[in-house]
Design a protein around this nucleic acid. Structure first.
Length: 482
DNA sequence: ATGTAC
């Protein structure tokens, strides 16, 4: 396909309807990102999504866009309800992959490299990292698995994995009510033993410093003080959600034919929202969503215990409260300008503006915070959305975005380079050679990506986190440390 | 992203 692309405002481009497209596509990029990182393939994927029946207004590419399976990462596709489609591939493999931030009252000036190393070891001793790792709490969690994924928070509270106030600071209060484990394959259920693990790829637990405050009022509201230690947790639904995506992609591909749907690509296999297969996927996806919220919650508990052990005190004395928890691979029914839509976000984060009812009451005046992690070794940002965010259906980018495939990164980079890039940042996890695909050079410049939406007033920066120490797993192999 | 295979 030869694509026409035209500028439609500051940091915004549009691809007019052409071929099979039902609506146009638009992508948010500043000049730097447009010149350096724009790939034809990811634009074609936006256009493919724009050709699905029922798609609403336009399909959106975020500044961190890069090609994925079906919808690109950094893609937002809204479907009309009830006549639109639902697509497992447009949510992605890691259902409810997301980011949670914990604050502390610990000043980073009180911690030296040795402290950080020890703290990291306490965390790593409790939270497994790397592909295929299984839970350390399996005896406990296995018994309550159905309840955790179908009923969510109360059982976690009962089991001692949560503080009562935690759930108020999670998107959707950490719970999708329609979850139904009977719509989840046995194969996926077996992989449920990965609950309370980080996984591999871009997942991590990072200790950082609140290094810069841009918005004093909102930073104070979020309990963030300059110079304090923060904990960023990035993980999702592990093998459980992955298997659900694989299972339903295949179901959807077969069923689409029966519904007479012409699919633009296998990765965009989709069925009507109201069809039995569509409803079943939503119920199974909801289980994976609850799984991932529970995953980040139990890891929060493990991190609190690690801090308590290292500082030899009760974890509540160190604060370690949840600032917020956002999902970035998810499909949700949401209202935009009075219209109900099924919004698919794949590598895109929901971001509600100030005064929106979906905000937790504590954040009603500011809008909830959104966390945009950079790559390993670079800064992460805390932002809030402005009322203008309605034009992206309440969505912002989720990270820096890859500039090359994992395979290409492993080919191009070496361990020396990664060590140099990490500099003084303490690392614990797989050997460096197992995480070369996560080298910062494999990602876009986080500042350019965050600035793209900030420059046009869709988001407002609140604070910047600078990494100090990171726990991260890779493709396996022996433990190493640096 | 992911026990990189039925």
């Amino acid at each position: 396909m030869f694509l026409q692309i035209e500028k439609c405002g500051l940091n915004c481009y549009r691809i007019p309807r052409q071929g099979e497209m039902k609506v146009e596509a638009r992508v948010y990029l500043n000049e730097f990102l447009y010149e350096n990182y724009l790939e034809e393939e990811s634009l074609e994927q936006l256009c493919d999504a724009a050709s699905l029946p029922g798609v609403y207004r336009y399909v959106i590419g975020m500044p961190d866009i890069h090609s994925g399976y079906g919808l690109p990462i950094g893609g937002v596709m809204a479907m009309e309800v009830p006549d639109g489609l639902i697509s497992a591939g447009a949510v992605g493999m890691d259902i409810n992959c997301g980011v949670r931030l914990l604050r502390t009252n610990i000043g980073v000036q009180d911690l030296d490299k040795k402290d950080l190393e020890k703290l990291l070891r306490e965390i790593a001793a409790r939270v497994p990292t790397g592909i295929g790792k299984t839970s350390k709490h399996q005896a406990d969690l296995g018994r309550h698995f159905a309840e955790i994924v179908e009923s969510g928070f109360p059982v976690l509270l009962e089991l001692g994995y949560a503080r009562p106030e935690d759930r108020r600071f999670v998107e959707e209060e950490g719970f999708f009510p329609g979850a139904n484990l009977s719509k989840v394959s046995n194969k996926a259920r077996k992989r449920g033993n990965q609950l309370s693990t980080i996984g591999g790829g871009n997942h991590f637990i990072e200790l950082g410093e609140v290094a810069e405050i841009f918005d004093r009022e909102n930073a104070a509201l979020f309990g963030l003080t300059r110079g304090s230690l923060s904990v960023l947790i990035h993980t999702g639904s592990r093998g459980f959600g992955h298997q659900i995506c694989v299972d339903y992609s295949s179901i959807m591909e077969k069923s689409a034919k029966r519904y007479g749907l012409k699919l633009p690509s296998r990765g965009l296999a989709a069925v009507p929202i109201e069809s039995p297969e569509g409803k079943d996927y939503f119920a199974a996806m909801s289980a994976a969503i609850n799984f991932a919220f529970a995953n980040r919650q139990i890891i929060t508990h493990d991190v609190r215990e690690a801090f308590g052990a290292y500082f030899d005190c009760r974890d509540t004395e160190l604060d370690l409260g949840v600032v917020y928890d956002v999902a970035h691979n998810i499909a949700k029914f949401e209202e935009v300008e009075g219209r109900e839509l099924l919004i698919h976000r794949k590598g895109a984060t929901r971001a509600l503006p100030p005064q929106h009812r979906g905000n937790p009451s504590a954040y009603r005046s500011s809008g909830h915070p959104v966390f945009i992690p950079g790559s390993m070794g670079t800064s992460s940002y805390i932002i809030v959305a402005t009322p203008k965010v309605v034009e992206t259906f309440y969505s912002v980018n989720h990270g820096a975005g890859r500039v090359m495939s994992r395979r290409e990164a492993r080919r191009q980079f070496d361990v020396e380079m990664l060590r140099e890039q990490l500099g003084p940042i303490v690392f614990y996890g797989d050997r460096e050679r197992n995480i070369l695909d996560e080298a910062p050079q494999a990602y876009k410049d986080i500042d350019a990506v965050v600035d793209t939406l900030a420059e046009i007033g869709i988001i407002k920066k609140v604070a910047r986190l600078s990494p100090l120490a990171v726990v991260k797993g890779g493709k396996g192999g022996r433990r190493g440390r640096r």
